[in-house]
Structure formats: C-alpha cells, structure tokens
C-alpha cells in the first residue's frame, strides 16, 4: 500500500455507498448516486474527482424546478453540484419523454455539468435516444449522444461558432430517435467535432478493472474511507452486547 491501493469494484462501490450514506443519511438515493459516480469513473469522466470536488458542498439545497413556455423542463441548481440532483432530473426527463414522446431539460447555475453524460446513457437504457451539450472553455463545448439501446454514448468536443459564445448551462433532449433530436437542434450536430472515445475502449477499460481491480492513490483511498467511516457507530460495552456474546 505504499504507492497505491487496488480495490475490487465491489469494494469501491461499498465505500462510495457508505460515503454517500454518511453525507445524506437516508435522505437520498445513495445507491443511485454511487452508480452514477462509478459510471462516470468507468467511462473516463472523472467520477471520483467530481465526487471529491463536490463533497464539501453536499448536501446542497434542492434546486428550483419550473416549466418553460415551450414545455421544456427548467432547473436552477442554486449553485450546487449537479452530482446531487442529476438522477432526479433525469427521472423528470425520462418521465416526460415517455408520456409526451419528447422532452427537453435545461439546467443552469450548477457545477459539474459533465455528469449529464450519465443521463444520456440512462435514457438509452430506458429505450430513448438522447443528446446533451454543455460548454467547455474558450468557445468550445461537449456533445454526447446515444441511440436507444446503444451500449455507450458518443462523446465529442465541438468548436462553437460565433453566436454561441454565451451559451450557459446544460441541455439534454430525449426522444424516440437521434434523428428526431437532430431535426430540432441541427446546429449542434453540425459543429466541428474532435476527441471521440470509442465505446469498445470504454468496455475494455471496465473489464480491466473487473479483472485486476481498481487502482487508486492511498490519499484518495483514505479520503474515501474517511467519508465512509461516518456511518460507523462508536463501540461501547453495551454495543458489543448488541451482536451476541
């Protein structure tokens, strides 16, 4: 354990669950939050880094939900991490797309917007196509899209032309097929793309972790254990009797 520690995926999952349980108690679906962080991590989207960055601000306020004039779902994240309310936001998107055929969600005033990629994948596993985009630095943005049932999202970096400089927040649209989305948001699909991660690489990376474990630094491991240990109760003579003699 001098340079790092190798965890099984179940260990990593258990630690994260406890860490989220330590943060939220029973006030959140910490199993879903754990799955979200792991999904991001295994897709090379810095799940653990986002978690460590977000943790000091968790739990954050429940964001404001409203409806736009065109029926879009609008969420004001009140400056909190999107990690906390990504799952419940995606519930709204999937619910509306399933009942209305198509749904659009805009999230503003939030941190860690890249977490939306997991929502794209969740839509695809729910039988919907989805696309999302969010700004990066200096006139560029990311776009992620995935057809219903496809194994992993396509993720690209795009150069933003004039007129899109002030684009803020994150947008995700769910519909029966990518074609339906392209019809409404054709600009985003025409921007110059670069830096795609092929889905077979993502799968291979996951299998590597499964086969050989997940390596992390001792510092990160200790930090995670520190959060997870919050669920533990102090031992006393009385508590020892609570497990048998």
């Amino acid at each position: 354990m001098s340079s790092g520690v190798t965890l099984s995926l179940n260990e990593l999952r258990a630690l994260l669950r406890k860490a989220f349980e330590g943060i939220y108690g029973h006030d959140h679906d910490w199993n879903a939050l754990t799955d979200l962080v792991l999904w991001l991590e295994f897709h090379d989207l810095d799940g653990l880094k986002i978690f460590f960055d977000a943790e000091p601000g968790l739990p954050c306020d429940i964001p404001n939900l409203s409806e736009g004039d065109n029926g879009d779902i609008l969420i004001d994240g009140k400056g909190g991490s999107f990690l906390q309310f990504n799952v419940t936001s995606c519930d709204l998107l999937v619910s509306k797309a399933k009942t209305a055929g198509q749904a659009v969600l805009h999230v503003n005033n939030t941190k860690h917007v890249q977490v939306i990629t997991a929502s794209v994948a969740r839509c695809a596993s729910s039988g919907l196509a989805a696309a999302a985009w969010w700004p990066s630095e200096e006139n560029s943005a990311y776009i992620a899209f995935q057809e219903a049932g496809a194994r992993a999202p396509n993720l690209f970096r795009v150069s933003l032309p004039a007129g899109f400089e002030n684009y803020e927040g994150v947008t995700i649209i769910a519909a029966p097929s990518i074609k339906d989305i392209q019809t409404r948001y054709q600009d985003w699909f025409q921007f110059q793309k670069s830096g795609q991660t092929p889905s077979n690489e993502i799968e291979e990376r996951y299998q590597q972790h499964l086969d050989h474990g997940f390596a992390m630094s001792v510092d990160d491991y200790k930090r995670l254990c520190h959060y997870a240990d919050r669920v533990l109760v102090e031992a006393t003579e009385q508590s020892r009797r609570g497990a048998g003699e």
């Binding site: 108690g25 029973h26 240990d229 919050r230 669920v231 533990l232 109760v233 102090e234 031992a235 006393t236 009385q238 508590s239 020892r240 609570g242 497990a243």
Partner: peptide, 25 residues
C-alpha cells in the same frame, strides 16, 4: 448499525443507546 469495531453489524435500542442517526436502512 455498523460498529466502528470491524464494521460489525449490531442492534441497538433507540430509547437507550446512541447512534440511531447512523442506522442502516
């Protein structure tokens, strides 16, 4: 709950013992 001693699962009495804020679901 889980005890800090090897995370051993234990039972407590809510009316008599501390730690219920960390109870398992």
């Amino acid at each position: 709950y889980r005890s800090e001693e090897k995370q051993e699962p234990r039972l407590g009495r809510r009316s008599q013992e501390p730690g219920s804020e960390k109870e398992m679901l």
